[in-house]
């Protein structure tokens, strides 16, 4: 009776969802807690744990690029540094977290560095960091997402998460990005 392949619409043949689906925060918080525990069980050191969370975040971010640019920008990508940063801060953040990121700042000391700040990242809402691991910021997962989005859209950068005014994501672009952007400016 069963014909193998019946109903087998590939995921790419289906229309792209509008991305308005919602899931309870409690669910996400508990799921994320399992993610952190899983990574922790695999790690020897705190750094190792952060790297694992960062890597998982990167994979999430990579997958979000296409969905969001197709859905919200008709597939049109950004070419300028400031535009992509504003895109991440506003459009992207809003789509993913339901609100814009709190603040975007350019570093005074380093041309290549930007800071994106958020008082209370959603992943940290129900996490209390043990005292002996006070440097751990699980928002490093989100840092991974940002890094993947920037790198994947042609702005290679390293993004890290720090405890500063809530959580601050430090975005450090590669030299080549800055060079190209100033060239674009000149035209």
């Amino acid at each position: 009776m069963s014909l193998g392949g019946r109903n087998k619409l590939s995921i790419l043949d289906k229309p792209l969802s509008r991305g308005k689906g919602e899931i309870s925060l409690s669910c996400f918080a508990l799921l994320f807690s399992e993610v952190v525990q899983y990574c922790q069980n695999k790690s020897q050191t705190l750094l190792d744990l952060q790297n694992r969370l960062h890597e998982l975040g990167r994979r999430v971010g990579t997958k979000l690029i296409d969905i969001y640019f197709v859905r919200e920008r008709n597939g049109k990508r950004e070419t300028k540094l400031l535009s992509i940063l504003l895109y991440v801060k506003s459009t992207f953040w809003k789509a993913l977290f339901g609100k814009e990121a709190d603040k975007l700042e350019h570093s005074n000391d380093d041309e290549n560095t930007y800071y994106l700040m958020e008082k209370e990242p959603i992943v940290n809402r129900y996490i209390s960091v043990p005292r002996d691991k006070s440097s751990l910021n699980c928002a490093v997962f989100i840092a991974g997402i940002i890094e993947a989005v920037l790198t994947g859209t042609g702005f290679p950068a390293k993004v890290t998460a720090h405890w500063h005014k809530g959580t601050t994501y430090m975005i450090k672009f590669e030299e080549s990005v800055m060079g190209r952007d100033s060239q674009l400016e000149e035209r």
Partner: peptide, 9 residues
């Protein structure tokens, strides 16, 4: 929260 975030996580 956005279901895609949960989904992908």
């Amino acid at each position: 929260v956005n279901s895609e975030l949960v989904n992908l996580t």
